[in-house]
Design a protein around this nucleic acid. Structure first.
Lengths: 144, 144
DNA sequence: ACCGCTCATAACCTCCTGGTTCTATAACCA
DNA sequence: TGGTTATAGAACCAGGAGGTTATGAGCGGT
């Protein structure tokens, strides 16, 4: 999934009004005024929110005379979920607890051993605990 | 899950730099300078990003002399995933395709029937397709 | 005691976001 | 044709987000 789509998707989900709109849309199609009704804000504000959701691909719009009915689009939700689940699982299964353990062991070693200058002169001696798996996704760059 | 935590979590995930930091952190603990290294931006910028991630509960920080090692915290990720999966599944299983089908049928009816004023005089005749399930989550309000 | 490394904070700038009101367009209704 | 409804667009504004540089505070090493 493209970085930009992830950006747009998560940004769209970061607003409670927009999440409420999605929740409402999960129950089926709705027009703009129907969507605007529950909120204490103007109709153009809702139109703006809808444009954000549309840019993220989360809603698509049809045409019914003057009305522009909105419908939920699931693909971005699915991909965002996949992204989240990926890192969530990755964390859960593998290195987090192991690293914590290694940290504790390392702390104990540091207390016992009196010569900290031993070994190679690299910046730090905990690289072995981290550099096994580098970046699996967007590693660097990410310019604005 | 509280609305505010969802706000903070999705907002935190909406930035590619922060997602990259999380990806990096999925491989294990790291210090601020280590996290800052791959990016073409200043160290205070990374500190700000980390504060955002911390406010969302996505990372926690320890203390190792001058260093403040960051580690991934999975709970918010899990809850955000749950929120997404909820609506994604809700959409996938139930009403979306049904609504699309109803829309097509309605369009066909409109073409065939010559008298559009037939039936009850309510605003719209598609309410039966939508109002079965109202808002399951944040229904209204959502003030800023 | 001092230097250097790591990190956070402060002050500042710019651009985006989320809201407003007013207005324009488009389609239906009579 | 003219009025009404549904929606989008423009202009505007306040505040927040993301970046910068400069500086200060905490801790270790020598």
């Amino acid at each position: 999934m493209g970085t930009e789509l992830l950006d747009a998707t998560f940004a769209a989900l970061a607003d409670p009004t927009r999440r409420a709109i999605l929740a409402r849309l999960a129950a089926g199609e709705a027009t703009v005024t129907e969507l605007a009704a529950p909120f204490a804000m103007s109709q153009p504000a809702i139109s703006k929110h809808l444009k954000v959701l549309e840019r993220a691909g989360l809603v698509s719009r049809g045409r019914d005379a003057q009305r522009r009915p909105c419908r939920l689009e699931a693909r971005p939700l699915r991909e965002a979920t996949a992204w989240l689940a990926d890192y969530r699982d990755y964390w859960a299964e593998s290195y987090q607890r192991l690293d914590a353990l290694l940290d504790e062991l390392r702390a104990m070693d540091a207390d016992d051993l009196g010569t900290p200058t031993a070994g190679d002169g690299d910046t730090t001696d905990r690289d072995d605990a981290r550099s096994r798996t580098a970046g699996r996704d967007e590693a660097r760059g990410a310019g604005r």
